[in-house]
Design a protein around this nucleic acid. Structure first.
Length: 724
DNA sequence: CTAAATTCCTTTTTT
DNA sequence: AGGAATTTAG
């Protein structure tokens, strides 16, 4: 018997047991919202005898989904495999594969991530003469994404909207070609997964009824970070029966860059009937000292529901701000503090270092490695974006979906097998002219004009190898298939032969990948009582992220971005790089909305800490190959002394004397450093503010005593005053 | 066709 | 700085 009384407070219990109304839970950080979801699911299954397959729970990450399922099973003491629990993308993908006959896609369509998207765009630019400068890939992809999140395909964009603008007209044309190419390749991007699901539910009455009927009870976590497409999917499913429960916190909305809109949480009471709104403000995670800081930081945001977190866990240790001369010192000091904590008996897995950008992880990795402190990076381009892994996955995608040109082109000459650019171009031309796919073209290369016999031989050898595998892929367990491909291509031994440590790491990655396929196969076999084949495996891999890989019981310090920290908690939290242009990030400080979102990101970081919170900033930091002087984050000003200790450092007063950043000495006479004095023929004495490059060629920003601030090349400067 | 040389380009955050 | 992409040389 589950005890719903002692484990939950009054309001949590209401969330769990009110099945009569649509429920909106406004849950502060650490207020036990995941607990509510788990107990509500348990309540439905155990008390109300709702079959698990009628319950849909949407989480923010795959890992959260797995955890939720495990905890629920522990609570119920029975397995609930048929429960629908996953991210929007994984749930939608499941539906789309199953219902592909209603779409212009086959069930085995590929998923394109950023790399493939860009590669598709580049080909379109080349074919249709679009200028990369005028249409930067990231901008275009961002815009396409924003349209898709609003459920708009190119044909839905109002002509009138872009008639006056050549740029917009160009963009719409690119968007159009892009969608066509994806369709031709039988591929979807991440946003398509949501868009097509939403459209299907909107337009197909039968399907809508079917899934409304399946998903009798719906729960959504992190509702504040849903976008319009996601809203529409849930709305279509829940509009009839209204049995929906959403959980979120407007102060933790940090995904507007991918179309998330607070509108969904703010208008929930209008979207559904007789909504019960329940607020959870008691925090069960952090000490009062930490919450005081969190409350004060977030109170500077204007656009929010005012709420104050409180807890009964005692005052605790006051958060501390540390200032370091440069980013290296920051990383080293944090590493040695962690060493001390470890010696005092802290568990490493209870410690995390949070930062704004992935690039910052590098410094911490080095510092921790030097001190031999185990660490794991959560997320980032650790694994699935590695070249060797992507190559291997491209083989698998091609075997499963021969229409997928991106994958085929990636591997057609990888490892090198004498099929060069010219051959590929000719094959592509031939395919285009005869309206067949590239894969079909390579099956019969002798039909292509201009191909030399030697080239034909190499192509058909490749094609035969692929054909054999794609036959095998239908029946052979995927674990065996992958092993065979890796061995036959000699990938591991190829990388092992090299002396480059990077290549050795690549070999190791491939071994790890093979191991992960085996792991998947075992789990799959347990659940389904048969060994998975390729088509069982690929859908899983497409949405797998590195976030899902770090095991909880591993004894290591966790490194991650602030975004990845959402939903997690740690005894000790370091938040590094509290500098303007980093947090808030330079790309996100133009509007008040952007700055408020960055502040929420900071808030999310703070509220991860259970007992100990250390903030830090560096007074200088390198970007690319340039050292820059930094300014403390604007989020630090306006905080009172009683919520943050700051090592006798006055943030309001500009620093006149600070320790010079340490750099490796170079045997060059004119090695310029930040803060260094330099002399110029005309402007006399000045101080270096930033350096880009070295020696004579360095481009420097120098503040001269005569008041001029100039960008200047090193060769015009002297490092000593001119003798009289 | 491959390998070397050169240029380009990056850094916001993620499913 | 460092890696990817593109151009050039063999």
């Amino acid at each position: 018997m589950i005890d719903y009384l002692t484990g939950l407070n009054d309001r949590q219990r209401e969330v769990v047991t009110d099945l009569e109304h649509p429920i909106l839970v406004l849950a502060g950080a650490g207020s036990g919202k995941t607990r509510c979801i788990i107990y509500r699911a348990a309540y439905l299954i155990k008390e109300k005898r709702i079959p698990p397959w009628q319950i849909l729970i949407v989480t923010f990450t795959n890992k959260a989904a797995r955890e939720l399922q495990t905890r629920l099973e522990q609570l119920l003491n029975i397995p609930v495999r048929s429960l629908w629990v996953g991210t929007f993308h994984s749930i939608c993908l499941r539906i789309l594969r199953y219902e592909s006959s209603f779409l212009p896609y086959k069930a085995n369509f590929s998923i394109y991530a950023a790399d493939e998207q860009k590669s598709v765009l580049k080909k379109i630019y080349k074919a249709h003469g679009f200028d990369l400068q005028k249409y930067p890939l990231n901008k275009v992809l961002g815009r396409i994404g924003r349209y898709k999140n609003r459920l708009m395909l190119p044909e839905d964009i109002d002509k009138a909207e872009f008639e006056g603008s050549a740029f917009l007209a160009g963009f719409v044309s690119i968007y159009h070609h892009y969608q066509q190419t994806l369709l031709l390749n039988q591929a979807m991007d991440f946003d398509d997964i949501l868009l097509y699901t939403a459209r299907l539910l909107q337009e197909n009455e039968e399907l809508r009824a079917k899934y409304q009927n399946i998903f009798q009870y719906i729960m959504i976590d992190e509702y504040q970070d849903t976008n319009k497409a996601q809203f529409e999917i849930i709305h279509q499913l829940a509009l009839q029966h209204q049995r929906v429960c959403v959980v979120g916190d407007d102060d933790q909305a940090i995904y507007s860059f991918r179309g998330a809109t607070l509108r969904n949480i703010l208008e929930f009471e209008r979207d559904y009937k007789e909504v019960r709104a329940i607020r959870l403000e008691q925090n069960y995670r952090s000490t009062t000292a930490i919450l005081d800081l969190a409350n004060q930081v977030i109170s500077h945001n204007k656009n929010r529901h005012v709420k104050e977190l409180w807890s009964e866990l005692g005052v605790g240790i006051k958060p501390l701000l540390k200032i370091y001369p440069d980013a290296n010192a920051e990383a080293e000091q944090i590493a040695s503090e962690i060493q001390t904590l470890q010696e005092e008996g802290c568990e490493l897995r209870d410690i995390t270092i949070l930062y704004r950008t992935n690039a910052q992880s590098r410094l911490f990795e080095n510092a921790l490695m030097q001190k031999k402190i185990p660490y794991s990076i959560v997320g980032s381009l650790q694994f699935y974006q590695r070249k060797e892994i992507k190559d291997l996955i491209a083989y698998l995608s091609t075997l499963s979906n021969p229409a997928d040109n991106e994958s085929l082109l990636r591997i057609i000459n990888e490892p090198p097998r004498g099929i060069g650019q010219i051959t590929v171009t000719r094959l592509l031309g031939f395919a285009l002219k005869t309206h067949i796919s590239l894969y079909q073209a390579i099956l019969n290369p002798s039909a292509a004009p201009d191909l030399k016999p030697a080239a034909i031989k190499r192509v058909s050898d490749f094609a035969q190898m692929m054909q054999a595998w794609s036959q095998a892929a239908l029946t052979q367990p995927v674990a065996d298939l992958v092993k065979e491909i890796v061995e036959e291509l000699g990938m591991i031994s190829f990388y092992n032969k090299s002396n480059d440590p990077k290549d050795i790491a690549r070999a190791e990655n491939l071994i790890e990948f093979v191991a992960s396929v085996n792991e998947f196969a075992e789990r799959f076999a347990q659940d389904n009582e048969k060994a998975p084949v390729l088509n069982d495996f690929l859908p899983f891999i497409a949405l797998q992220t590195d976030l899902d890989m770090v095991s909880d019981d591993l004894q290591s310090v966790r490194l991650m971005t602030l975004h990845n920290a959402k939903g997690l908690e740690f005894e000790t939290v370091y938040i590094a790089g509290l500098e303007n242009e980093l947090l808030p990030h330079r790309m996100s400080m133009d509007t008040r909305e952007e700055i408020e979102e960055e502040r929420r990101l900071f808030y999310v970081g703070i509220t991860r800490a259970k007992r100990r919170l250390i903030l830090s900033l560096a007074l200088s930091r390198r970007l690319y190959d340039t050292y820059n002087i930094t300014k403390p984050s604007m989020f630090l000003s306006g905080l009172s002394d009683d919520v943050l200790d700051s090592e006798d450092f006055d943030l309001k007063r500009p620093r006149s004397t600070y320790q010079k950043p340490r750099h490796k000495a170079r045997d060059s006479q004119k090695f310029f450093r930040i803060g260094q004095r330099v002399w110029h023929d005309e402007h006399q004495e000045g101080v270096v503010l930033s350096v880009n490059g070295t020696d004579q060629d360095a481009v420097l920003v120098v503040s001269f005593k005569n008041g001029k601030l100039l960008k200047i090349v090193g060769s015009y400067l002297k490092t000593e005053p001119a003798s009289l």
